[in-house]
Design a protein around this nucleic acid. Structure first.
Lengths: 338, 338
DNA sequence: ATCGTTGTTGATAACGTTATCGGAAGCTAT
DNA sequence: ATAGCTTCCGATAACGTTATCAACAACGAT
């Protein structure tokens, strides 16, 4: 009745009256143990509820059967990705560990490098990095980057067609008759943000609508910064009639700001987001947005990683999935009445 | 140019021309290293990109600063819980590890026991168990159970008021005039499922509506089993006009079955779910459901766990949060036309 | 009787890290 | 000059596990 400390392999050995080496052999079904001892040891293992320490195992054996998913934070995008990854990992025999330092990541770029150094070689056999900032390094382990900040490079990546998606989102607003369309852009240092902004300007130019730099404000993919940027956009004299936001979180923040200023969405202002996280559908009004197939991105990242870990040849190391428009209630034709 | 293997503390020591002990002292800011050596070692550390192995550290020091969240699978409920937990952990200095064996858990009950044995003592200082089946054991580590299968017992727990929630959901259907209300129940071995079923029967009895055992079918919290159960319910001659499902996944499965049979929701059949995961709002029609404050459950679980780990006195070891009804589009007054 | 073979078991090193302890060197006070 | 003190550094054990190798017994074959 004092199971206060872990039961180790040594406890099992003592209880069974054998050496730790023998217990280890039984555990790993190694040759060289008599049937009777094996049975006895197994019963002791069950009795004590012994389970080998993952940590000690992985320090000794450099192969664990664990895949790590390294995220800066557990926000909607990364948790959706987890669902897809979890589905992909079923039946593969691998286990999944998600690691997050919980927001401490903002202290410095290169968090993924630190996490990876801390975990790779021991604990995990391979890793999926979610929106990493550094991808040009040669890590020791098998690694796949999802939505990397610098775009596809040497490292295997999975991302989606940000350029197309931004064109679709902007075109949707153009089709509804909007001409003063603002952009709530993402973090300027990230490839995805650049592409989304470029898709926006491309669509405007193709439609013959001049691009007004004053209508592009940085929201940094962040709710607070986006709220401020939205305030700047909506406060001016010549207010835009629509906002294309670089992600759903920014779009939702913009809607809140608009409501606070007495503007109704979509009657007075149309808003389009990007990502299609579940929260987009929960917003009021439900958000029209550009969908990234996040589940599939997680699934494909795991598939690709497992191929790499097994040393199998991979047909393509850069997987790009398509994006599409999801129309909900936050957009409306200009001038249309309720 | 051969960073194929991990850079260890030994590599740093050699490169800096000191012993591993000294490097360790520098890393941990221990007393007994001159300022000049310390600076030199630190520069070498930066240069090599060295980061201490979490595994080796935790094997040696039994205190890591890592909290584990152990889940059977990464489905909507547990991922929502993660978001709340992630918020709670910010600024506490703890890191977060989510562990899942990826569906392998179904092979045997007691997965939480195995996971915990595998990780506790090493790697994690404390754990949050999500819907564990066994809670009466005295684990060695600090542990908090969320939504435990057997209801609150000796172990600290966080759950929500399932009984009240089920009454609310059923009452909503009664208020809409429904009398033949079916129940798609959960896994019979789980406390939460029992309470939800009891809330359903309580509400019916209080309204003077007889409970028909044929209208209670086991959906097991599982989409496939729920689809079958829904088929049984809707196939009969005296079809129910409403279904109260034990969770959102079951409810969504039921809606799909109804659609497949040519029944429209909510015109021909009203459906109420339980949980209010984001997927509920994404369903068509958007699901009326009983909300559990899942984010807050995750937050409170982490708060409680950290208190326990720090040995602080806790006011209450069993936290129960309230549930509430969220009305969306999947329910309608009986006989009402579109 | 001796040898080799087979079957079974245990002692030990190693994985990467940190805490403990002892020792070397430089200094001050006698 | 020597004793004592301080400062700095390195050797080593230990955490829990597994692979390697040696030891040992029993046995049949020569």
């Amino acid at each position: 009745m004092k199971p206060s400390s872990r039961v180790t392999i040594r406890d099992v050995a003592v209880a069974a009256g054998v050496s730790v080496a023998t217990v280890s052999k039984v555990l790993n079904a190694r040759y060289g143990v008599s049937a009777t001892t094996s049975a006895h040891v197994q019963s002791v293992i069950r009795e004590l509820g012994y389970e080998a320490s993952l940590v000690a195992q992985s320090l000794r054996n450099h192969r664990t059967n664990v895949i790590g998913i390294l995220v800066a934070d557990l926000e909607p995008f990364s948790t959706e990705l987890l669902k897809g990854a979890a589905k992909a990992i079923k039946g593969t025999g691998y286990e999944l560990v998600v690691y997050s330092a919980g927001g401490r990541s903002s202290d410095h770029a290169g968090w993924e490098q630190r996490y990876l150094s801390r975990l790779s070689g021991t604990l995990i056999d391979g890793a999926v990095l979610v929106t990493p900032t550094v991808v040009d390094v040669d890590y020791g382990t098998a690694v796949v980057a999802v939505d990397p900040h610098a775009g596809p490079s040497g490292m295997p990546t999975v991302d989606s067609d940000n350029l197309l998606g931004a064109r679709l989102g902007t075109q949707h607003l153009l089709d509804l008759g909007h001409r003063r369309i603002a952009m709530l852009s993402g973090r300027p240092d990230l490839e995805s943000a650049k592409l989304r902004e470029q898709g926006y300007t491309d669509a405007l130019r193709a439609a013959g609508v001049p691009v007004d730099p004053a209508l592009i404000q940085v929201g940094n993919y962040d709710p607070d910064a986006s709220a401020e940027a939205a305030r700047r956009l909506l406060d001016g004299p010549d207010r835009p009639t629509a906002i294309f936001a670089a992600n759903d979180i920014s779009a939702i923040a913009a809607i809140e700001v608009a409501n606070g200023m007495g503007l109704r969405v979509p009657e007075d202002l149309s808003v389009v987001g990007f990502d299609n996280v579940p929260e987009a559908a929960l917003a009021t009004p439900a958000l029209t947005t550009v969908e990234q197939p996040i589940h599939e991105m997680g699934h494909r990242a795991i598939d690709l990683l497992i191929q790499l870990m097994r040393g199998e040849p991979v047909e393509q190391t850069h997987v790009r999935l398509t994006t599409s428009l999801v129309v909900r209630q936050s957009t409306r034709a200009i001038g249309a009445n309720a």
